[in-house]
Amino acid sequence: MNETKIEVQKLNAWFKTTHALKDVSLTVPKNTVLAIIGPSGCGKSTFVRCLNRMHELVPGARQSGKVLVDGQDLHARRVDPVDLRRRVGMVFQRPNPFPTMSIFDNVVAGLRLNGIRGNYDEQVEKSLRQAALWDEVKDRLQHSALSLSGGQQQRLCIARSLAIEPEVLLMDEPASALDPIATAKIEELIHDLRATLTIVIVTHNMQQAARVSDATAFFYLGELVEHGPTEEIFTNPREPRTEDYVTGKFG
């Protein structure tokens, strides 16, 4: 068993008066992929957004509890969320490259905007290779990021996240807006990235969770209902609510 990378202790989150996450505790071992599944509104997006403190940016949002990365509490008040987000990257549901920037500038945006100087060329190639996009864009790095297809844009966003060399990558339904081939590429990428990163991925697609993850957590109505090895969740869940969800007996 790998050492623990992320440890969540009694995490609670609210939107104004709505209690969106209730006492969630779980751990993610280093270099593994955790998939978060559950019906819409179950708190799975809120959960990952708590991990890099994007949740607190929403007006009226609060959270309590602890999130430890490598044993260090990154939700303590003295920790700057900006530092946390450099260690915990995030990829969103819809590809969101910066429209005014070229492919090259998008990849280095995180470095440049954070005032990090250095040999961008090397970093761009490395990140784009990691995101399995290099061969497709190496001859047009100065083109607009919007000239890419949806799947390429999403891999560009992944490359952009990787460029700041995070330790953890959060993915909020990264393939839900993509076609099956682009989805397969993202999934293959997740398998490769596991070697260097710890990944938490939210997905509506249970087959996707089954394909890419080592462990799966099922959320329902803000609660963590069940968390276990992916194979077990999908063949023999312990909780009846998980069983109903994975077999399609909800609603």
Partner: peptide
């Protein structure tokens, strides 16, 4: 300017004022 762009920038660890200036304003320019 889509919220997602602001979030993309913040998620890269870019500070809020820098995000407003370099991403949001630049996109709306």
């Amino acid at each position: 300017v889509p919220r997602s762009l602001r979030e993309a920038s913040l998620a890269l660890g870019v500070s809020e004022w820098r995000t407003s200036l370099s991403v949001v304003l630049r996109t709306a320019l």
